[in-house]
Nucleic acid binder design. Structure first.
Lengths: 110, 110
DNA sequence: AATATTTATCGTAATATTGCAATATAAAAA
DNA sequence: TTTTTATATTGCAATATTACGATAAATATT
């Protein structure tokens, strides 16, 4: 196996899982943090910042892009990446939802 | 390969990635949602709720537990699972951090 | 004690992920 | 036009993940 049985779950569950999965690697977390740390979007220097080879970084960027977490646009012979707020807000809404529920019911065991 | 180079990233980045990764499967999202939907923690009926075989569910529960997202305690011959708020608050803090940054700088390109 | 119930573990097959060298592509600079 | 610069793609090896049948372990029930 190795493949998730996505068709047995709701669209929403699959969507949330896909976004979370894309963030489930330290290099990709580092990319997001770097994108945040610079003032605008970045055109070029991600590879020099990460401790990974260029093809590997390119692959991680691709996955973040596929998950909709970042957007990239061509800027001369470089590519300009920035965070896609809409996608991350989906995850944030999920966590707000969780926290609301947890605070209301004040878990009565465990 | 197939193994992440975790030693090249910060503890925080690895921690965030590990939690996100644990949420990166629809079955595990479904488990969290089910844990939220019932009033207290659940002792037993997770397997019947998910469209997966019992060993598979057990494995997913183990991963959520390893990531610190849920806690389990023995309750007779069943096991009582519930959400660990502390761990999820780490992710929520990350997203708040991101959103604060994004709102401040109001991305000037892309 | 014998049986049922609940959850975990083992073993294994199918597939996915990670990482990089080599190479391709495409625009910029010389 | 040739060369440089920046990024993507391909191919491949090592490892991880997903799923489940078979089985184990541990408590409850009869």
């Amino acid at each position: 196996m190795g493949a998730s049985k996505t068709d047995h779950f709701t669209e929403k569950q699959n969507q949330l899982a896909a976004i979370a999965k894309a963030l489930g690697h330290p290099a990709r977390v580092a990319i997001i943090e770097y994108l945040l740390s610079v003032d605008s979007c970045i055109c070029g220097d991600i590879v020099n910042v990460l401790p990974l080879a260029q093809p590997t970084v390119s692959q991680h960027l691709k996955e973040l892009k596929n998950a909709g977490i970042i957007k990239g646009s061509i800027e001369g012979n470089a590519i300009c990446y920035c965070i896609n707020e809409e996608t991350l807000s989906i995850l944030q809404a999920f966590f707000s939802h969780i926290n609301n529920h947890l605070q209301i019911k004040k878990s009565n065991c465990c």
